[in-house]
C-alpha cells in the first residue's frame, strides 16, 4: 500500500471508483445497506489496478468511469489484512457477533454480522474504518480473474471502508472519462 507521512500522521493513498456522469464529486459516495459488505461507509481500493477493474466491471451504466484519489488517515482504521493482531481481533469480533446474533436467528449471514457491527458496535468503539481483502473474484462479474497463475490467487484484492469521513483528508479526481471495456 502506498502511504504518505504528514506531520507524523500516516495516510494511505486510496482510490474510489464511480460512474462517469460529467459531474465532479466533492466526496466519495457511500455504499448503502444492501451492497455494503463491511457496513455502510465510503469504499476504497488501495491498488489502482483494482479501482480500474471495478470501473470496467461494475460502473458501466454510462460506458465510462472515473477514479478519485484520497489520502486517508490510518489512525483508528483496523488493518485486518497486514496486521496479524488486528486480523485476529477482527476474526474474534466476527465470531462473537455471529454467535450473539444466533440467539435471535439461526440463518445468520456474514452480511448480517458486518451490518450489525457497523450499525451497533464499531462507532461506539471509535473504529474509523477497516482494511480487509475481498474475494479474489468479482462475484457480480464472474469473468474477471485476478491471477495470472490459476488457481493461485496470489494477489490480495484489498478494500478499505471508511466509516468516519474525518479520516479522509483529500478527495481529488484522478482519472476522468475512462472507457469501460468488457473482458
Amino acid at each position: 500500500m502506498e502511504r504518505k507521512k504528514i506531520k507524523e500522521e500516516s495516510y494511505i493513498i486510496a482510490y474510489h471508483t464511480q460512474e462517469e456522469r460529467g459531474k465532479e464529486l466533492d466526496e466519495p459516495i457511500d455504499c448503502y445497506r444492501d451492497d455494503a459488505w463491511l457496513g455502510i461507509g465510503s469504499y476504497y481500493w488501495v491498488d489502482l489496478e483494482f479501482a480500474h477493474y471495478w470501473g470496467h466491471d461494475s460502473k458501466t451504466n454510462t460506458g465510462h468511469y472515473c477514479i478519485y484519489k484520497s489520502e486517508v488517515n490510518e489512525e483508528g482504521i483496523l488493518n485486518a489484512t497486514f496486521s496479524e493482531e488486528e486480523y485476529l481481533f477482527f476474526l474474534r469480533s466476527i465470531e462473537k457477533a455471529r454467535k450473539k446474533l444466533t440467539i435471535s436467528r439461526k440463518d445468520v449471514t456474514l452480511k448480517n454480522v458486518h451490518q450489525f457491527l457497523s450499525d451497533e458496535v464499531w462507532s461506539s468503539c471509535n473504529l474509523k474504518g477497516i482494511i480487509f481483502d475481498d474475494l479474489p473474484v468479482n462475484p457480480k462479474k464472474g469473468g474477471r480473474v485476478y491471477s495470472d497463475i490459476l488457481p493461485l490467487y496470489y494477489k490480495k484484492r484489498i478494500q478499505m471502508v471508511v466509516f468516519d469521513k474525518n479520516n479522509i483528508k483529500t478527495f481529488q479526481p484522478y482519472l476522468r472519462y475512462e472507457k469501460c471495456i468488457k473482458i
Binding site: E74, N79, S83, K96, K100
Partner: peptide, 28 residues
Amino acid sequence: MSNSKLDLKKLEARFDEILESFDKEKID
C-alpha cells in the same frame, strides 16, 4: 504492519461490553 494506533486490548474490552448489552429482545 499497522499505523492504526489502536489499543486492541481496550478495543476488545469495549467490544465485549457493547455485545454483552444486547439481549435477545435487542437483537430481535
